[in-house]
Structures are given as C-alpha cells and as structure tokens.
Simulated scan of single mutants.
Amino acid sequence: MDDEKVFIAELLNPKTRETAFRQLVARYGKPLYNHIRTIVLNHDDADDVLQNTFIKIFRNLENFKGESKLFSWMYRIATNEAITFISQRAKKLGLSTEEAQQKAILNLKADDYFEGDALQLKLQQAIAILPEKQQLVFKMKYFEDLKYEEISEILGTSVGALKASYHHAVKKIEEYIVNN
C-alpha cells in the first residue's frame, strides 16, 4: 500500500483522524494558501478562504473516493471556495465578478503582503480581464508551476483544452501589457 493510501486511511479512521488532519494542514496549508491567494489576491481573504477550505475538506473526507489524488481533490475544493468567495464578495458590493477583481487589484497596492512592483500589478490587471477558466489555468501554470495533468484533475478539463486556454491567456496578457 502506498503512502497516500495509508495517509487517507489514517484520515478516515476516527482514532487517527485528528492527528492525520493536523499533518494534512501542516503539509498542504502553504501550497493551498498560495493557490487561493493567486485567485482572491488579498492576504486576509486568502486566510479566510483557506480556513473554509480546510473545514470543507474535514467535513467531506468520507466522500473522497480516491479517483484522483488527494492533492487534486483538495485543490478543487480550494479553487471552488475561492471562486465562491469572489462571487459572493462581488454580489455584496453590487459589482460584477470582473469589477470586484479589478477593485481587488487596486487594493493590492495597500496590501502589506503584496511584494510586487508596477509590472506585477499590470500583470494582475491583465489576468483579471481573462475569462474565469483562462485565469485559473494561467495562474495554476504560471504562478504555481503545476503540470497540465494536475490542472486537468483539479479542474476536470482535458489537457488539450487546458493547453489551448493557457495559450489564449498568454496571448491576451501579452496584448494587454503591450497596449496599456
């Protein structure tokens, strides 16, 4: 039995669940935070979404079927939580999702945890004009250096479609940066 299957068995066993879940949080907290942060942009928002993600993971461990890797399953939950957060925030502010993302980008300058320069802000603005799927694919590939196969498992999309999305995203971003 491989390590992941043993770890999943520990997560599902009521006697070892709490300890195994602490290990899961320690192992995946930072990568999941970074993934969420690329989507929601703000540090405090990313922390909130990360907490919600781990709550959802904990509550749904019994539903994990092992059809994908644990990593992919958790990233899918984190991605959905981040997208839901953005949609809810936009709705609360009476804005479209795109307008809410543009507002979040403007707020990046004031975010103490943002270490980027003017070019990084321009890149974020360019990413924000992309359709949601292209944004996700670009961020996962560019910022997180995930393989297309991993992104495919997370988003439930074919590798070919992901490559096309990434290519289109890069072209649109290049065009935006050159023209703005």
Rank of each mutant, 00 (worst) to 15 (best):
R22E: 11
R22W: 07
R22N: 15
L24K: 04
L24N: 08
R27W: 03
H35I: 07
H35P: 01
H35Y: 04
I36Q: 06
T38D: 11
T38Q: 12
V40A: 02
V40Q: 02
L41S: 02
H43I: 03
D44H: 04
D45P: 02
D47Y: 01
N52I: 12
T53C: 03
I55T: 06
I57H: 06
F58C: 14
L61R: 06
N63E: 13
G66T: 08
E67F: 09
F71I: 09
W73S: 13
I77S: 01
I77Y: 03
A78L: 14
T79M: 01
E81F: 00
F85M: 07
S87M: 04
Q88N: 15
Q88I: 15
A90V: 01
A90D: 08
K92C: 05
L93D: 14
L95P: 14
E98H: 14
E99S: 13
A104S: 10
I105W: 02
L106E: 07
K109C: 03
A110K: 11
D111A: 09
D111G: 13
D112H: 05
F114C: 09
F114S: 13
G116W: 07
D117F: 07
Q120A: 15
L121H: 02
K122D: 05
K122Y: 06
L123E: 13
Q125V: 05
Q125W: 03
A126I: 13
A126P: 13
I127T: 08
I129E: 07
L130V: 00
P131T: 07
E132Q: 14
E132A: 15
L136H: 05
E144L: 09
E144R: 10
D145G: 14
